[in-house]
Design a protein around this nucleic acid. Structure first.
Lengths: 124, 124
DNA sequence: CTCTTTGGATTACAAGTGTAATACAAATAT
DNA sequence: ATATTTGTATTACACTTGTAATCCAAAGAG
């Protein structure tokens, strides 16, 4: 039942704020986003509205003002996005993506050890 | 100069066919996609057209028929998409994504060994 | 009590996308 | 030479997304 709504790029920025701390009023979210974006307040209100309509957030009414909070966790959204990305680009397989990434990116010795450690933990 | 055009989900399916083998006529692409999708031939022609317009593919005229081929490599598209995905969801860092994926997915012993081997190769 | 401000609700509007159908010209069949 | 088929070009149309502006009601200012 708990289908995760699709969150667009712009909406994602708003969600990040709410995942970071919630509930927060529209104005609080707007202020928080002033640094990272150049969106007008109205734009951010639109995004909050759409997120509400698609069931990604809800709000409490404090005074005359809404305080929004997420209805979907960052974790599940991240996983959903990752899965759909992997499916689209790599046919769902992690390994090719991993290989490709390794080709592309140069990781430090330390990072490589780190990743191996993570794999080790997985074995147990 | 070589900016990679944005390739949509549907277009990506078409590109996969052309990356797989090219040049191919519209009809060949259409036939190849009959299995994997339920798109009408006209739809696929539209996609080929759009890909052409955005500079992702071009074509040779054979007889009266176009044979399409990619202008952008799978590799660069995949990398571009991966980067933008990582940026959007994980703030650009690979490790959190890796961690998250490991949490989510159960890999076989063999797969884990495989990944470790890949990391080993990287060290040399 | 009216005037202004402010927050939420509604509306806007162009570009991009999914998903085709229609129009047209050339090749083919008759 | 026409009629039909077939491939390409053009057009369609609703939904999503980015990016707001306008409308309206309630709260606060005077």
């Amino acid at each position: 039942m708990n289908t995760i709504p699709h969150i667009t790029d712009a909406e994602w920025e708003v969600m990040k704020e709410l995942w970071n701390k919630s509930p927060r009023t529209a104005n609080e979210v707007i202020e928080a986003l002033q640094d990272r974006t150049d969106w007008k307040p109205k734009t951010i209100r639109t995004l909050l509205n759409r997120l509400n309509q698609k069931g990604a957030v809800s709000f409490l009414q404090e005074d005359r003002v809404y305080a929004y909070y997420p209805l979907v966790s960052e974790d599940e959204c991240v996983r959903a996005e990752t899965r759909s990305f992997l499916k689209r680009i790599y046919g769902g397989a992690f390994k090719p993506m991993f290989v490709n990434f390794l080709k592309d990116e140069q990781l430090s010795e330390e990072e490589i050890r780190e990743l191996k450690r993570l794999l080790d933990d997985k074995t147990k």
